[in-house]
């Protein structure tokens, strides 16, 4: 039932996204939404609307009851999705549905290890690959636990994208970068998603530091809330990731019972469009 994805290998969709952005002398826009939020049908409609609105890479959240690194907005999004019956199996089906009409936009699943562990690592990787998943970000799997999922994912042809943080010093960076693929996600603050706004100068310096250790694109996320932030970050990074702001735009569009309205899909797509303009406004005239 899942469409056979032609030719390009999984990580190629990620590198192609960054290559296209680079050709336009701009940073890539990486957008995060929670799968199945506020319900599976609306979640799929949002997913389908993202590329046209300007998303270069889609991060799709896998709902979990206990998201230790997420702030209140994404916690609530996960609970909305779970309340509507979302599961990891359904999230993979959402990716497969997306791939029926789009084999160009890279999809990265983001979440926590327990649902994957319970699903079964080998079975998960096989199903994720068949569905058309390009990469994984699993917050609670540091390099010390690479044998759990990172190495099997790489063997299965799925990129394992690592988070680097302000606490990842030069001594530790090689450990963090060793088995990472696709891109490096720089967490611009010490903290949870959607918390403080980063210091953009410090962020640019951190990106430059990471780039001394790797040829992979570096995406900056956590705390990017609007087009102005996106433009500021875009000047010093290969990509800008936005999550909480989109999840909040979605939440604000819901009715009093937390159900989707006709405003829900446009609310998310509209903000993505603004962010895409922000990223483009920061197009680098002087990039080597």
């Amino acid at each position: 039932m899942m469409k056979q994805v032609p030719d390009i290998s999984m990580t190629d969709r990620i590198s192609a996204a960054f290559a296209r952005a680079r050709a336009e002398r701009r940073a890539a826009l990486v957008t995060y939404v929670m799968a199945g939020d506020p319900d599976q049908e609306t979640g799929r409609a949002i997913l389908a609307a993202l590329p046209e609105a300007g998303a270069d890479v889609v991060e799709l959240g896998m709902a979990f009851t206990d998201p230790m690194a997420d702030g209140p907005s994404i916690q609530a999004a996960g609970l909305r999705a779970l309340a509507a019956g979302q599961s990891l199996k359904k999230t993979l089906a959402d990716v497969a549905a997306f791939r029926r009409t789009n084999d160009r936009t890279a999809i990265v699943l983001m979440g926590y290890f327990n649902p994957i562990y319970v699903y079964g690592v080998d079975r998960f990787l096989a199903d994720a690959k068949a569905a058309g998943v390009d990469g994984l970000i699993v917050v609670d799997l540091p390099p010390e636990e690479d044998e759990e999922l990172c190495l099997p994912a790489l063997r299965a042809g799925i990129a394992f994208i690592r988070l680097a943080t302000p606490t990842t010093d030069d001594r530790r960076l090689p450990t963090v970068l060793k088995n990472t693929a696709g891109f490096v996600y720089y967490v611009s603050i010490t903290g949870i998603t959607g918390a403080a706004t980063p210091n953009f100068d410090a962020t640019a310096a951190a990106v430059a530091r990471i780039k001394k250790h790797t040829a992979l694109p570096v995406v900056v996320g956590f705390g990017v809330k609007n087009a102005v932030h996106a433009a500021a970050v875009a000047r010093g990074a290969d990509g800008v990731a936005v999550g909480t702001a989109l999840v909040e735009a979605l939440r604000a569009s819901l009715d009093a019972d937390g159900k989707a309205t006709e405003k829900t899909v446009p609310a998310v797509a509209g903000l993505v469009r603004e962010l895409a303009e922000g990223v483009r406004s920061a197009a680098k005239a002087d990039v080597a």
Partner: peptide
């Protein structure tokens, strides 16, 4: 040395906490 009791235990934390 990796904090395991048989298959149990380990260090399943966000990268920010790992150095700590």
């Amino acid at each position: 040395e990796t904090g395991h009791f048989g298959m149990f235990g380990g260090r399943f934390v966000a990268e920010t906490l790992m150095p700590l």
